[in-house]
Amino acid sequence: MSEPVIEVRDLTIGYDNRVIMQHLDFSVSRGEVFCIMGGSGCGKSTLMKHMIGLFRPMAGDIRLFGESIVSAPEEDKRRLMKRFGVTYQGGALFGSMTVAENVMLPLAEYTDLTESEQREVAEAKLKQVDLAGYGDYMPAELSGGMRKRAGMARALALDPELLFCDEPSAGLDPITSAGLDRLILRMREESGVTIVVVTHDLDSAFTIGEHVIMLDKEAKTIVAEGAPAELRDSSSNIWVREFLSRDGLKH
């Protein structure tokens, strides 16, 4: 097993004084596609936001590339953030900028590239996510799936080692969703990037997921961990088996 890119140790997360998840312990290996799964409202996205340093956990530690993102000073945190990219449910593109400008933004912040160089990189990244020629479009002019892909191009702009994807298939039709799954796999193959996907879509999980953790809202912790098919077939937790087999029967 390769070195872990992410290590989560005895993590407790929540809002204010309300605990959402506790005693979370897992690690993500370099180059794998890691899925965080669970029912709606169980705290998947919240866990991801803790992992990317947006929220501070109530207890425990999260280490990215061997460094704690919880206790890191602002400068170190910023340096860590430069090494990973994040795509959000709705794409989170800035409506005041064109698609190309959205992709150029991290380049302008972190590199010394000239504007034309930035634009070249942006065009290449857009081509990578099958959005060549859409650079001058405004985000409002794109469909939901295209926005997500544009968001992915922006997340990949700095060639990150780690990519977080929050619900990439949410709100998309199955064909578009399947297209995004293929894109994620292609990314991993082309650049060897480690990918963490938050999803409740079993099709996606079974298509791209190599390692899955299942979060349970009632238990407030991880109830199962392993390969998706393995969990569906042999998990000791009946809820996990039922959850994964409902759609997983097709596979």
Partner: peptide
């Protein structure tokens, strides 16, 4: 709401 603020933050902006 659209997580653009979060996106900015994670981009280090």
């Amino acid at each position: 709401v659209n997580e653009e603020i979060a996106a900015l933050t994670t981009m280090g902006v």
